[in-house]
Amino acid sequence: MSATVEERPTPALTEPRKVAPAKDSRKLIRSQVRAGWLFLAPALLHSGIFIVIPVVAAIVLSFTDYSFGDSWSWIGFANYSELFQDVDFRAALANTLLYAVVVVPLSMAISLAVAIGLNQKIKAIGFFRTAFYLPTVTATVAIATIWLWIYNPGSGLANGFLSLFGFAPGRWLSDPSTALPSLMVVGIWQGLGTKIIIYLAALQGVSRDLMESASLDGANRWQRFVNVTWPALGPVQFFVLVTSIVGTFQVFDLVYVMTRGGPGTETHVLVLDIYQNAFQALRLGFASAETVIMMLVIAIFIGLGRLLQKADVND
């Protein structure tokens, strides 16, 4: 018995088995790594050309006085120190922060409410889903043009509607006190579609078993929403938050078409200020410094969002 047992691990039989799989697996791993890089290559090349190079270029340019002319020089942090004394930049930063702080939570809340509504078994659900998504696929310039008419002080829909209730006509976009809120309304409305679709997909992924269990335990609708739906939406909330913050910080076309940043600096936002400094004042170095600051502010906001959402870093 014992001899038989001792004979089991015969080198002649086991050694080739040990060596062969190791070689094969290394080969397999190498080919998998190659395939991985091959599949990644287009995305890496794209990111390298259109993201990494421009970002590095912006950082480098921010330390120069380049203004499209023949000569330029390194000026250290001069653009940055000038930036924080620039009243237009400060106004643009404040307006952008205010725009983000108002538009992001409001649009998320409205989108979630609408998504919950669209997740019910109601008639013409397809029509409603399409209608809510329509602004997202419409060009911002077209949307802005329609809203320009809505806000027109003389013949606009907004004043026409208010006049039915005896309100005095408003000068929505030319009154300093209403210009930015008017843009916020358009921004919220335009951004609903994408968020609704994402929330809708997440809502349909909420575990029915958990919902049924909660119902059986006697939980009402609100309790089911708070204790089952809301926690299940966590990762999606974080995704929507991040994309919304980035989107609101990048607001430009809406402002460009509707107010050009006016009246005064009431609707002056960061990207518009960057655009004007770069392509109208021809101060590309200065505008690059502004871009770097904007990237940092966005990063800080996303960091804060992560903290608030207590999101899993490894999502």
């Binding site: 237009d88 940043g261 009246p263 005064g264 600096t265 002056h268 004007q276 400094n277 004042a281």
Partner: peptide, 22 residues
């Protein structure tokens, strides 16, 4: 020589003065 930059500055800041903001 920085007139292209000043054009925008004039438009914004004069408006602020005219509207009583500055």
């Amino acid at each position: 020589s920085n007139w292209l930059e000043m054009r925008g500055n004039f438009d914004i800041q004069l408006t602020q003065a005219v509207l009583g903001q500055k």
